[in-house]
Design a protein around this nucleic acid. Sequence first.
DNA 1: TAAATAGTGTCTGTAAGACAGTATAAA
DNA 2: TTTATACTGTCTTACAGACACTATTTA
Lengths: 251, 251
Amino acid sequence: MNGPQTEENYLESYNPGDYPPVALAADLVVFAVAGSVLHVALVRRGTHPFRDRLALPGGFVGPRESAEDAARRELAEETGLDLGGLLVHIEQLATYSAPLRDPRMRVVSTAHLVLLATNGSTLPALAGAGDAADAGWYPAHEILAGKPGGQLAFDHSVILLDGLNRLAGKMEYTTVATQLLPGEFTLTQLRTVYEAVWNSPMAPGNFTRKMTPQLEDTGQKTRTAGGGAPATLFRATDRHIHPPLARPRTP
Amino acid sequence: MNGPQTEENYLESYNPGDYPPVALAADLVVFAVAGSVLHVALVRRGTHPFRDRLALPGGFVGPRESAEDAARRELAEETGLDLGGLLVHIEQLATYSAPLRDPRMRVVSTAHLVLLATNGSTLPALAGAGDAADAGWYPAHEILAGKPGGQLAFDHSVILLDGLNRLAGKMEYTTVATQLLPGEFTLTQLRTVYEAVWNSPMAPGNFTRKMTPQLEDTGQKTRTAGGGAPATLFRATDRHIHPPLARPRTP
DNA sequence: TAAATAGTGTCTGTAAGACAGTATAAA
DNA sequence: TTTATACTGTCTTACAGACACTATTTA
């Protein structure tokens, strides 16, 4: 390799041997709601560095797949979920590329936000292949409240916070929140998702009024479990909430 | 390398030789406003593939820098701008990793949104080192309107569209638009930026009423050029626009 | 003056926030 | 009945959208 080059001919003369190997990873911020609490899937690390610390699940991107393909594959491997079912939402979050974020070598990681559908009470089983034994669900807000020493491995606390902020923000003006529920759901279920993610109570009446225009009435009603009127089942549409639903101010 | 491995010991046994080289690039979507028109910086390709087509500027990420470091460096190299001046806004956009997005080899690219400050009439000079000779400003909306054959190289049309959407969306609830203006600016200048990005006229009176709470009055006034009252100079704050400024519906 | 721009005032309709009231079911 | 939940209605206040009006400058 002979001297500095301009950007234009840089790529032409690219020679893999001239560059240090860059490992491209895909990390996952997997959310699911149960019992009015937002949970995140984490794995307990068994090896150095950050041994015994919690970390986001993830893995390397293979030669013939995109980062999102890899995220999808890793998710299937660690949860044993059938991704043919449409109840999984995946979107790219951001890429973390600080040179020393992994002390061993250069790992650039593209993080993905994953939303799994639940009925609001049962979390998807995280029992699948190998590593899944270490995987478990943890309350997201408590993890982020971060008791000292309870921080996640690597820069994963930052990634988790970014993921939560992305989700919370998008819920203001889209119907992403429905991705955390089955295909048909009640307004109360949806409201519970909002309360779990925003960590803040919502007035039921006004919530109904604001949400209904973005939803499609299935005509069906629930058979209620514990006292109360049967609720209408809705389906989501791709309509945006306009103007947005205001998130209650935190103080 | 012996058989499939679990995610946990994957990294431990990572061996660069086992993986095809991944080139990590940083592409730039550089915006600036002049004459009520949003412009984007593009370079004309001199070599195959996509010879003579327009493309986003960009370059490879070095071994000891993050993707954003690389974006900043590339920007300086191609514009000759003094990045010590605070009038440059950079934020990560997304990472594009489709295996065949570059026909020659695997290039994963992290795109960045860059906003340059102008007074609204003069575009920053794109004369710097080598490749800058090919660089120029192009009207963003016209490029995206995309006369057939006028498409950008690689997946850069998609990246540009994502960049514009990010900017246009963020302008609804933040003061990012001020990053396309000098440190002190008038409400008319700011309104012009909104009109350029949203490609849609805004009512001056209502714009003033909605924006003022997010701005800080400098107490100074402009010396007007061609007839009209002197305008107040404002500075931006980091306050969010709440509720958001509605973008005029496109139909 | 006239023309151009900056900025304020006013009116109207919509909708958010608060909350009462009604309906439907289970215990 | 009581209790719990689902939903609708009402009232007040805030504000967006439309636009008229005044003020301040240059030509």
